[in-house]
Write a protein that binds this DNA or RNA. Structure first.
Lengths: 225, 225, 225, 225
DNA sequence: TATGAATGAGTGTTCATTCAT
DNA sequence: AATGAATGAACACTCATTCAT
């Protein structure tokens, strides 16, 4: 065996590879795969690479995941849930606007902390490789957000038009912010993220002044969905 | 599948397909690869698949492109240039707003006509596989657009903040529209594309009282999704 | 061809061929490649052929060698070292002549035992495919031999002229012998090998009688090399 | 068509590629292939390369040769005949020694003039690719030389043992000289070529002085061949 | 649970050869 | 005689997955 690598900073006190419990191994694999998949892409990342980075043997992957594709999906769902959880745990505020800003800011913090998560879910989701469960998990996140938007609609803060549309519009702009934060092009404390979050709200907000007048009923919307 | 295919309209006078002129073969390859790459992804598309779909032998690919990666980049540049060209050819209007709406609408028409182009450039660009020339071509398009935004800034129509930021913001929302149009979730004549284009402008427009002009009724929204 | 081969003498206790230890597999590959390369040439030998002859899957080659070229070089170096070792282990005699005859004879024995080794190193060395390490290994062998020739020069047994030249001359003739022995055109106990070995010595020996006179200075030799 | 090359120095007066007569084309192909084959090896040289170097289209090769292998063999036979011709045309001298020295010197001149010829015939003959005609041509050359050696035997100048053996021995050493001259390691006017030619003769010459004692009968020779 | 040597179908690419022009 | 686009079998090499240990 040519090179045994000891990743920087790890105080390797045990000469023989420590008896890791299964949980730890699984997590190491998830971490390794997440980093590899988001930095090189799924297809460009090989299972030997994942194993090496996780510090385990090639075969070990298959004790925890039935296939490379399942590994991806497991990771994906975990990543999506992080964002879903944030939406659920962000307390609603007096205004929808404030509420959504909070969510965006917290998501931004996730992006700053764990860029890979953002890349996997928002920047370059491996759409064609996702299974039903993963798609459902993503839809759940979207729905959770849509609830917030919908509440904004009933309070008249959100402009006319279907809530799901404004959810997507808002997401699209927040995605831009997350991407830039994840790639460290923007720091969370800079003005750019805030500007984009603001404009995300503006793009779905009911117009001020005249526009803020009571919205016409949307009951008649024959929106297909 | 019949073993002799006669593409629409071509008066196939030659019984054997040998001796197509080079131009035609190259174009068939580009078309086949574009469709495959955008529907399955680059890595999932194999050279035998590309060749089969183009109706040529595998080796023929390499008479026209030095590698699969170069094929991708050639296609990508071609696709980007289509959008750049639209920006360049769209005449400027009295207002920046109108100008940008025009561009968005024309891009939308491209999306409706040739979905693959949109997918390649906006929906899932193969970022990590692009060479310098391709990146430059993309940057050119962005810059062309930025000029328009900048002119809007000087006329006071665009909100405070750097022009490149608002370019990206606008692009982000137009991207949503293009994606939905490309996937046929939205038709160009529907209201959703228009709504998103509007909100794209709103998200970068300087906040005015003027904007609050009476909106047309939304009652007719036949938004597909 | 039976689907389970049991190479001579191996007490095949395991019914399925999986889990051979690495050493064995590598050696089988080396053997297979050596035979193929020397009988058909490097380019005419394909990796499927090598694998089949070694009784392993094609991919297995690449667990032991990084490329077909590296496989060749590994084999080449191993072969060269056999001859180098013989030179090193042959004890020097009273006369240089005797010493070199010994070496030639032992080399001849190697040729009789393992013809492929001779073909690879002397008959048709794959010169343009050798890497630096391989070239160095070959040079080492030559140098080891040159030492012997040099000692013959100082004792006056070897004719005037540079030692490296006579080394090459001697090698050239011994090469003829090795080739014929390797191809079984000559058996080691026949007179032809002996005759050639004799003439190899004669071609570099100082002349008897008249020629054994004190050697002229070699200062004037403008031999390019 | 990307690049049209105009090989150095050719005063390309005719704008369209000159109407070459067949003879000329064939010769250009032979020359190009000879150079390529001897510098890179047969397998490493591709037919497109040969065609490009000859300044003709790929398909043109097959108007003059039925296959790449036949091209090689045609070239090989031509090369061998050059050396055969030299042997035939070198007038015999008073002594066999002088005669053979003459031949060696003339061959050396060929090597200096046209290194590729020597490489193809002596340094790295493509043994496994030669057809019967080529092998026969080579044998013819050898036989022509053997005649000279045989005449040396009957005059007592050549040592005891079969003429064909001494022919091979002599060839082996002359081959060394030719190789070095061909690679420009040695110039023909240097002493090394001469030294090696001398020693080539010595290795097959009957011993002078003491060694010139009556030769033992050759009846006992059990030389395999 | 973990290992890692082995697998073999599949990849992108090459190239000697053909043939309509 | 000459062209060069097209061919397709073959190539070296990869990698997700298996399984004896």
């Amino acid at each position: 065996m040519p090179h045994t690598s000891n990743p920087a900073g790890t105080p390797d006190t045990t000469p023989k590879p420590r008896r890791r419990d299964a949980k730890q191994t699984r997590e190491r694999l998830v971490r390794a795969a997440l980093e590899l998949f988001t930095s090189q892409g799924y297809h460009a990342s090989t299972t030997p690479q994942v194993a090496r980075r996780a510090g385990v043997a090639e075969g070990t992957i298959y004790r925890h995941f039935t296939s490379k594709e399942q590994l991806l999906n497991d990771i994906y769902r975990g990543a999506v849930r992080v964002f879903t959880q944030v939406v659920r745990e962000t307390p609603s505020k007096a205004s929808c606007r404030e509420h959504m800003m909070d969510i965006a800011v917290r998501w931004g913090e996730v992006a700053a902390t764990d860029a890979a998560l953002v890349k996997l879910v928002f920047v370059a989701p491996p759409t064609s490789l996702l299974d039903d469960a993963s798609r459902k998990a993503h839809e759940e996140m979207r729905l959770e957000l849509e609830k917030v938007v919908a509440s904004g609609k009933s309070s008249g803060e959100v402009r006319a038009g279907p809530a799901y549309l404004w959810t997507d519009v808002w997401l699209q702009l927040v995605r831009l912010m997350l991407e830039r934060v994840a790639t460290r092009e923007w720091a969370t404390q800079h003005s750019a993220p805030k500007q984009v979050i603001d404009s995300a709200w503006d793009s779905i907000a009911a117009a001020k002044g005249v526009r803020s007048a009571p919205q016409p009923s949307e009951a008649s919307l024959p929106v297909g969905r």
